[in-house]
Design a binder for these strands. Structure first.
Lengths: 177, 177
DNA sequence: ATCCGCATGTAAGTGGTTACATGATTCG
DNA sequence: CGAATCATGTAACCACTTACATGCGGAT
């Protein structure tokens, strides 16, 4: 469901082809939503079928034609309705915690190694987010501010994860039962 | 994939029926993994088919018989192999951030309301996690410590989300472009 | 020569959700 | 008397992933 609206949102900024959408998704909303080409093509087909988007073939020479999609009035309405709709409680699944939960079956050294790998992943995530270019703060448009805020959210959670992993590791290293 | 191993993990502690598993999943790993009965029954059938678990019918009077499942030796091996296997990078989808990203299409008041709802959700999540009964710290077994740590992880992220929402709200309320 | 980028899609499978079906017992 | 609990499952659907298929043009 969300991908549908993420695509509507991106098309509301600029009309695009599926191929371009894939790249824009990766670079703009990539840190909180991922997808692949086949899903984008399918979703675009659904949007056209439901009258929320229209496609226009842009003929090109030497390379395949582009199917450029743009929002219809109904598409923009659907997007706005979604933005204002109730928030359904998010149940996020965390595969790592499932491992941690049963990790006492491993040797203590393996448990430490497990959390070290988690720590490393958190560091990489943090670095990737901090590497994103951002406009200078202060005097932003609302849209820019909100987009920056989604990045800040990722950073906040990556830092929380890192601090948690470090704390667990500290306690594990002094372990003696 | 993870549900399969979460069930193996729980069965490694006590043999159980699907019905009991549903309740145990909700109360033990519920804060980082959710599922429903039909999925549990399907997964159990798969585990039996693959020789990782065995079922035994426990006849009862006045109520339906229980299909109690217990791990096989191969099931325990599969569980341990999974625990030690490489961590595949987690790509978590965050529907709320998708909304926030396009929320400048709303009125400023609606944007504030959106983040207020998010804030409230974070508070509820935090309260639910803090309400979980925990053994007194210090002098824990490794397993208890790790289970406690998964709860701490949830608390850390709920606090991060709350702090983030508060910070965004502070900035939105002083907004004047 | 070989790979990468451009550009489109189909097919098959997995993991998860929702709805349906059944039927006895116990609690308010 | 109705609702909740015990206990099992099937069927259909949705979101997402992985693999496959095609073909031109430009860079290494």
């Amino acid at each position: 469901m969300t991908l549908r609206f993420a695509i509507l949102g991106l098309l509301s900024i600029t009309p695009m082809s599926g191929y371009e959408l894939k790249k824009v998704v990766d670079s703009s909303v990539g840190h909180f939503w991922s997808t692949d080409r086949s899903q984008i093509y399918r979703t675009l087909a659904g949007l056209v079928e439901d009258g929320l988007a229209e496609r226009e073939t842009v003929v090109q020479e030497g390379r395949p034609n582009r199917q450029v999609h743009h929002l219809t009035a109904r598409g923009a309405e659907a997007l706005d309705a979604w933005l204002a709709s109730p928030l359904d409680p998010e149940v996020s699944r965390k595969p790592f915690l499932a491992r941690a939960f049963f990790a006492d079956r491993l040797t203590p050294a393996e448990v430490v190694h497990l959390f070290e790998r988690r720590r490393d992943e958190a560091v990489r995530t943090l670095e990737a987010l901090e590497a994103i270019e951002v406009p200078t703060r202060g005097d932003l448009e609302l849209g820019e501010f909100l987009r920056l805020a989604t990045r800040d959210n990722g950073i906040a959670h990556a830092r929380a994860e890192l601090a948690w992993a470090d704390q667990v590791l500290d306690q594990l290293r002094v372990w003696k039962p």
